[in-house]
Design a protein around this nucleic acid. Structure first.
Lengths: 219, 219
DNA sequence: TAGAGTTGGAATACACCATTCCGCTTAGCA
DNA sequence: TGCTAAGCGGAATGGTGTATTCCAACTCTA
C-alpha cells in the first residue's frame, strides 16, 4: 500500500554490490548448468551465503523469472529481425541460427523455451512467437523454398533436438551448428521424399512451451 | 563353494511366477520411464512388494544389467543386418531406422546406448559398433553417396537428438521418423554446403557410450 | 560509536529412493 | 490336515539432495 511510495532509506552500498554479484552469478550458473542448478551453487559463485540470496529474492522461482524476463523478450527480438529479412529462406535459417546461438550459450534459456523444469514461456511470448513462425513458414512455402509438409510446429522438435547437443563437448561448443545445418538442409530439400510422419499440431506446440494450465485465465 | 552343486530344493511355483512378472514389469517400466524409474514403480506394476524385487535381484544395477544384456546384443544384430545390405546408402539408412525403432520403444535402451544414468555399453559392444559404423560410412563415402565431411561419429549426436523426441507426443509415437528423415536427407545431400563444425573424434565417441573408466583393463 | 541493515552458513523441513528387516502368509510335503 | 521354511508385503532405515528459515555475528552509515 505505501511501502514503495518513497524508499524509506537507501540500500546499503555493500548490499547493492552483493545484489549485483548475485544476479551475475545466477546468470552464469543457470546458463552453464540449467535451471536445476542449486541456490547454493549460485551463492558460492557469487561469494556470498545462501541467506543473502533470500535477502534479494523471495524464492528460486522469482530469481528465474526476474533473470529471464529480458532473455525471453530477446527471442521475440530475434523473431522480429528475422521477419525483416527479405529472402524467405534466409529469414527462417537466420531465426533458427540466432535463436540457437542464444540457447547454446544459456542452458536455462533452453529449458524455459522448451517448457522444462516447471518453467516455460508466458502466453504473450508464445503467441507472438507462433505468429512469427507461422508467417515465416507461410512466406517460405509461398516462395517455394520449403519442403512440402514442413510447418512451423517443426520448430519445437528441432530446438528440442539441439538441446541434446549443446554442451556435449567442451572442446567443440559449436558442434550444434553441424546438426542444425543438417536439419535446415532437410527442411529446404524441396524435392526430398515426403516426410514419414505428420507435424505436430498448433495446440500441441503451444502447450509444449507453456508450463501448467494457463490457457483460460491469468497466471 | 557348494551351494550351486545341486539345487537344494526347487523354487516354489508361486515364486517363479512372481519372478516372471517382475521381469516383465521391469521391462515395461524401464521402457516407458527410463532407467531412473524406481523399484517401487516396478514392484507396483508387477503387483508385488519391493521386498520381492530383492528376492530376485541383488540391486537395481543388477536388474538393469540382466534385462538389457540381450537388448544390447540386438544393437549388434541390427548392425550386422545393415552390413549385409548391398546398397551403401540403404545400409546406413536402415541401420539408423531399425536402431531408432528399438530405441523409440524403450527409453531405458536409449539411455544405456547414450551412456546416461550411470549405465552404458560395454567395450565389446562399443568396439563392434564402432567397427560396423566405420565400415558403413567408409563404404558409402567410397560410393559417393554421402555428404563430404560426414563421419560415423555423427551417429551418436543423431541418436542423442532423437532421444529428445521419443515420447514427446503420445498421439504420434512415430514423430521421430520425421526428424530422422530430415537428418538422413541432410547426410545424403552430396552437393550440400560444407558442414559448419567438425565431427567429433573417435575417442570422444567411444567415451560417450561407455560409462566410467573402462579404457584400460577389465570392467 | 550506536544500532539498523546485512551477512554466512548451520539448521530445518521435505522429498525422493535404494535397500533392509521382520512378522505374517502360504505352497508343498508328509 | 498340519507343519514349516520359502516367500511375501511394505514399513522402516539410511542417505542424499535441496529449497527455505533463522539468528548470532558483523559492518556500514549517520
Amino acid at each position: 500500500m505505501s511501502t514503495d511510495q518513497q524508499p524509506v532509506r537507501a540500500k546499503r552500498k555493500d548490499a547493492a554490490v552483493n545484489g549485483e554479484r548475485l544476479v551475475q552469478a545466477a546468470r552464469d550458473v543457470f546458463a552453464r548448468r540449467g535451471l536445476s542448478a542449486t541456490l547454493e551453487d549460485i551463492a558460492r559463485q557469487a561469494g556470498v551465503g545462501v541467506g543473502t540470496v533470500y535477502r534479494n529474492f523471495a524464492s528460486k522461482r522469482e530469481i528465474v523469472e526476474t533473470l529471464y524476463s529480458a532473455a525471453l523478450d530477446s527471442v521475440l527480438t530475434d523473431m522480429r529481425s528475422a521477419l525483416k529479412i527479405d529472402d524467405p529462406w534466409l529469414a527462417i535459417a537466420t531465426f533458427f541460427e540466432t535463436t540457437a546461438t542464444h540457447q547454446a550459450r544459456d542452458r536455462g534459456l533452453c529449458e524455459l523455451f522448451l517448457g522444462r523444469e516447471g518453467f516455460g514461456l508466458n502466453e504473450r511470448i508464445a503467441d507472438e512467437l507462433i505468429d512469427g513462425l507461422s508467417a515465416l513458414f507461410t512466406r517460405a512455402h509461398a516462395a517455394g523454398v520449403l519442403r512440402a509438409g514442413v510447418g512451423f510446429t517443426d520448430a519445437w522438435p528441432i530446438f528440442a533436438m539441439l538441446y541434446g547437443i549443446y554442451g556435449v563437448s567442451d572442446e567443440q561448443p559449436e558442434l550444434w551448428r553441424r546438426y542444425l545445418q543438417l536439419m535446415l538442409d532437410g527442411l529446404r530439400a524441396v524435392d526430398g521424399p515426403p516426410l514419414p510422419a505428420p507435424a505436430l499440431d498448433e495446440a500441441w506446440f503451444r502447450a509444449a512451451m507453456i508450463p501448467k494450465s494457463a490457457a483460460a485465465k491469468a497466471e
